[in-house]
Design a protein around this nucleic acid. Structure first.
Length: 466
RNA sequence: UCCUCGGUAGCUCAAUGGUAGAGCAUUCGGCUGUUAGCCGAAGGGUUGUAGGUUCAAGUCCUACCCGAGGAGCCA
């Protein structure tokens, strides 16, 4: 006799007739006047619950078992038997049920055995993992993270732990959160009246990272294939279903590579992790398809077998100009695409993720490689239906003089990037990489619309409870 | 931050300016090797907050708070 995972009991990993012990939480209880109760117990190891049958000759039947309600924690011991009822193949004929933790005041238990709105569940984020939806999201999210490391490991990438605390927010990625140990009421002042950050903990201004890219480029320029995977922070006051103040980003960087290599990598990577979700979590995925988004499984299957649509920015603009549709914002070459344009391309024109490549240089970051036309840079965005931009990447500018010209053009300080520029002085190579919003990938896979519902404890403007 | 919509029982939602209601959940009773079970009954409310208009406000007005969708920004 040993502790059993519900997943292995239901999957036939334990022979019928064995004594088993299951530890978990009650989802529902149904009593029968025949003198027995059916208790659905989940332990998070799989989507399904196991049915525990408790007969009224158990010593605690009347005072405990018949009082079990949703959320109670129990240890159930008994024989694994074939089920007499429909709906499950095996069940546990309980020899003993120990109640480990009761639910005080079952009426107000926040997670009842019924449908709750996502908005409500966000207010009880500490208990929402007990719902079947958030259990499924947590398992699939973990699967995608594990598959990410596996993919890069199998392809000879090294995981680089880039710093969380950084000194520069000038990458253009957005507002950064300041880190400081200065006395906020009475900070040290400079002669001109500003705050004197030379007195601060690090002797200068520091921030939470907005991207590990510049750091990880240093490692790609010596270890060839590297990636980061960690939390990233943006202090933007953006209140949407696609943004978080703290989110997880994956940033691979490959040396001796161009934009096409970068796009190939993005495709292979996404195909790999999507296949992992389909292969390893068919029950969770089936639930998403049934209750969250009906195409959840079919579109991933299609995706895994086919390739991305790839489109030049210039061709994308032509397609938008020809679109049988009026856009709020006019389409013209040189513009930064609006959400409505991106949506049209991936949701209506192609009906699948689209890679848009070679954007006008004026709307992209300084480190992106200038193309021979002198007008565009080797940048790409991967646009996913319902999510928008899921990946942003580029070939990096490896030519020092071109990089310096771009830094100047954008009004940035060359000295701030002295170590980044050094990479171009000492054995520079063409290299490329991208950033993938991991949480957005989880949105895409599960079909769940709001990014706040695919991360355990969302951080967003005015939202840092739990 | 802007635009639009919303906030009523534990949850999901009704209620023409005129007696605050239903379903689910909970409790109790009945039925049933049951499948978020079925039937019946009961308890459960400072209508987001603060003001205002009115004989009378859940409903109309003002401000604020919170939520959703869209936009901007991006991943």
């Amino acid at each position: 006799m040993s502790d059993q995972k519900i997943s292995s009991l239901l999957a036939g990993g334990v022979p019928v007739g064995d004594q088993v012990t299951v530890k978990g939480w009650v989802r529902t209880r149904r009593d029968s006047k025949a003198g027995l109760s059916f208790i659905q117990v989940h332990d998070g190891t799989c989507f399904d619950t196991i049915q525990v049958v408790a007969v009224n000759d158990l010593p605690n039947y009347a005072d405990e078992i018949q009082k079990l309600s949703a959320g109670c924690s129990v240890i159930c011991t008994g024989e694994l038997v074939e089920s007499q009822g429909k709906g499950q193949s095996v069940e546990i004929q309980a020899a003993a049920i120990e109640v480990v933790g009761w639910v005080e005041d079952p009426e107000s238990y926040p997670v009842q055995a019924k449908r709750h709105s996502f908005e409500y569940l966000r207010e009880v984020a500490h208990l929402r993992p007990r719902t079947n939806t958030f259990g499924a999201v947590a398992r699939v999210r973990n699967c995608l993270a594990q598959a990410t490391h596996r993919f890069f490991h199998e392809n000879s990438f090294y995981w680089i732990h880039t710093p969380i605390i950084t000194t520069s927010d000038a990458e253009g990625a957005g507002e950064a959160f300041r880190i400081s140990t200065l006395d906020m009421v009475n900070p040290p002042r400079t002669e001109s009246g500003g705050i004197d950050f030379s007195e601060d903990f690090f002797g200068r201004e520091t921030f939470l990272t907005v991207s590990g890219q510049l750091n990880v480029e240093c490692f790609s320029n010596s270890l060839s294939r590297v990636y980061t995977f960690g939390p990233t922070f943006r202090a933007e006051n953006s209140n949407t279903s696609r943004h978080l103040s703290e989110f997880w980003m994956i940033e691979p960087e490959i040396a001796f590579a161009d934009l096409n290599d970068d796009a190939d990598l993005a495709e292979n990577y996404l195909r790999y992790i999507f296949k992992a979700a389909l292969d390893e979590h068919p029950d969770d995925m089936a639930f998403f398809a049934q209750h969250i988004e009906k195409d959840a499984v079919s579109r991933l299957e299609k995706f895994v077998e086919s390739s991305f649509e790839r489109m030049d920015y210039t061709d994308a603009i032509k397609a938008l100009e020809k679109a049988p549709k009026k856009f709020e914002f006019p389409v013209e070459w040189g513009m930064d695409m609006q959400s409505e344009h991106e949506r049209y391309l991936c949701e209506e024109l192609c009906e699948r993720p689209v890679v848009v490549m070679n954007y006008p240089k004026d709307i992209k970051a300084f480190y992106m490689r200038l193309n021979d036309d002198g007008k565009t840079v080797a940048a790409m965005d991967v646009l996913a239906p319902g999510i928008g931009e899921i990946i942003g990447g580029s070939q990096r500018e490896e030519r020092l003089e071109v990089l310096d010209a771009r830094i100047a053009e954008m009004g940035l300080e060359k000295e701030e990037y002295w170590w980044y520029r050094d990479l171009r002085k000492y054995g520079t190579v063409p290299h490329a990489g991208f950033g993938l919003g991991f949480d957005r990938a989880v949105n895409y896979v599960t079909g769940i619309k709001n990014i706040r519902d695919v991360i355990p404890f969302p951080r967003a403007p005015k939202l840092a409870e739990f």
